[in-house]
Amino acid sequence: MARSAREASGETQTRPARKTISQPGPDTRGWFRRIVIGVPFFWLFALFLVPFLIVFKISLSEVVTAMPPYQPTFGSIAGWWSALKEFSFDNYRWIAGDPLYFNSYVLSLGIAAASTVLTLLLAYPLAYGISKASPAWRTSLVMLVILPFWTSFLIRVYAWIAILKPEGLLNQLLLWLRVIDQPLVILNTPTAIFIGIVYSYLPFMILPIYASLERMDQSLIEAAADLGATPFKTFWTVTFPLSLPGVIAGCFLVFIPATGEFVIPDLLGGSRTLMIGKTVWLEFFTNRDWPVASAVTVVLVIILVLPIVLFQRVQARAQ
């Protein structure tokens, strides 16, 4: 393999060829390798992992009216040691004691799970339809799916307010069609959150499903049809099982971020539907209780660790 590749590139790549083979020492190689691995590793470590440890640390401190509004703060090693003795699990006891937080977690998981199912129901026919289209159409259709994904999340959620309001466009249409004689109350209810999540996360579900449908060996479907399976049976016994990796990846891509979603419940869900992302936001910005906000976040991370690890497994297997 090496020889044919050498011949192939020898015609175009004249510059590296001038150097002698003995030139590239292992030192140069190690240098490149060290930078390529080290720099991003250090960055992610310092700005992704370390912050989590800080969140955990602050969740064990208590709130004070100062800046930063928590105690103990620690500057030195000695400070760390003396602070260690002041750590308490009071914030966690507080969270466990107040049903508001428990309800908020359960509500978030429930809404995320239900909207994941709804997103799947809408996304699958779409992904399936795209994979059946002619190759020329397919590229354009995939692009049509990706385009809203590039436009602002906030804008897309905002667009729904004008539609779902009591005097909004949906109610106007339904009243005009005489389907209803009184405006429906949709905005500021869980229904509006479902619509918002399904709408915003739809591309995350369509793309992995489409990718696995497109990779599928078409001759398997032909074989099933030749052997007398009805189109419906072919779909359930051949197509759907083969597209499962995409379905699973899509479900994780929707479920995990939806659980901690803030913008959608805040703009569409009103004040009564308190999802956990909004609880963190309120604790942090309104109550200015950083330790409790941190403790709520730590519990959320613990809840989401399992789905995140599973998601990474699925991703690693796909590579």
Partner: peptide, 30 residues
């Protein structure tokens, strides 16, 4: 193969799905 590869894979894939509230709060505290 390099030291910390599994950790690095985790640190690359986790932020993709991590709720923004968590990332935002933790970075602020840093």
């Amino acid at each position: 193969r390099f030291f910390g590869r599994t950790l690095m894979t985790g640190m690359v894939y986790a932020p993709l799905v991590m709720p923004e509230v968590i990332t935002g709060l933790s970075l602020l505290l840093l």
